[in-house]
Structure formats: structure tokens, C-alpha cells
């Protein structure tokens, strides 16, 4: 067992973990944060995407011990005080989901994209979402939602 200490959605956690524990399983099974989905289990589909120190990563391809000392954000950490994050609002308004399985990963990857590029083009969003698969093939509305969230976040930033 290896002792780890990490912040998840602003809450500090300490835990003893088996080194082979993958971050996705630690989040789901130890912390009960089942919003992080496990889809392909082979680093392809992106359903397990979380933010690690602010950057999008596939949590099925990171060991929990590698997140020692890190700041993790999962989909449960997006809303603040009951108010949806702009990306959640935009996915809701633009119907950026059908079955919803890929949605947590899509949301987290999109937050990652917008933190690096606040004003992406349609093509830039498609390229940056390469690591996230939607098997309902709802990509068009997902891209529309990310464009809308980007605009919303830019105007909020300008107003503040």
C-alpha cells in the first residue's frame, strides 16, 4: 500500500492505495465519484477524462499514486453552489448529449480545451475532441455546445 494525498474537487483526501489502482477506479470506488465513466478501458474513448492540475487527462491511464499531491477535478466539481458550469448549461441548451455516457468526459475535455483556447473555431473544437468518442454520434450538437460555452465564458470574463 502507498499513502497518497490529493485534492479532489477542492476536498483534500488521504488514502492508502495499492500501487496498481488506476485513478478512474480510485475516484469511482474509493471516493464514490461515479460521474467519471469507464468506457473502453484502453485510453481511447475519453469517458474517464478528468482534470489533473487543470489539464485534461484520461484517468484510466494514470495510476492513483501518480496523482499524489495533485489537484483533481471531476464532473462532480464543475457546478459551483448549485449553479451549473457554463459548459454544462451549454450542453443542456444545445442538446449536446443523447445517451449521456460520454458526457462527463466530453464536459471535462471541453473545459480543458477552453482553458487553453478561449475562442476556438468549429474545426479546432473537433480536432481537440479527438480523444473523446460519442457512440450516439452526437458530435454536431456537442461542437455547438462548446462554441456556445466559449462565447458565454468570454462575455462573462469581459463583464467581470
Amino acid at each position: 500500500m502507498t499513502r497518497i494525498s490529493l485534492s479532489v474537487n477542492g476536498v483534500q483526501h488521504e488514502a492508502d492505495v495499492e500501487p496498481r489502482t488506476l485513478l478512474a477506479y480510485f475516484l469511482r470506488e474509493r471516493l464514490g465519484l461515479t460521474g467519471t465513466h469507464i468506457g473502453c478501458d484502453t485510453s481511447s474513448c475519453g469517458a474517464c477524462t478528468v482534470l489533473l492540475n487543470g489539464q485534461s487527462v484520461k484517468s484510466c491511464t494514470a495510476l492513483a499514486v501518480q496523482a499524489d499531491g495533485a489537484r483533481v477535478t471531476t464532473v462532480e466539481g464543475l457546478a459551483e453552489d448549485g449553479d451549473w458550469h457554463p459548459i454544462q448549461q451549454a450542453f443542456h441548451e444545445h442538446h449536446g448529449l443523447q445517451c449521456g455516457f460520454c458526457t462527463p468526459g466530453m464536459l471535462m475535455a471541453s473545459v480543458g480545451i477552453l482553458s487553453e483556447n478561449p475562442d476556438p473555431t468549429d474545426q479546432e473544437i473537433r480536432h481537440a475532441l479527438e480523444g473523446n468518442l460519442c457512440r450516439c454520434t452526437g458530435y454536431q450538437n456537442i461542437v455547438n455546445a462548446v462554441l456556445a460555452a466559449a462565447e458565454d465564458m468570454r462575455s462573462s470574463a469581459a463583464a467581470s
Partner: peptide
Amino acid sequence: IGDPQVRHR
């Protein structure tokens, strides 16, 4: 290489 998540790690 890969996708943004892969490039971050």
C-alpha cells in the same frame, strides 16, 4: 500525437 489528453501526460 494522440489527442490532447495523451499529449498532457
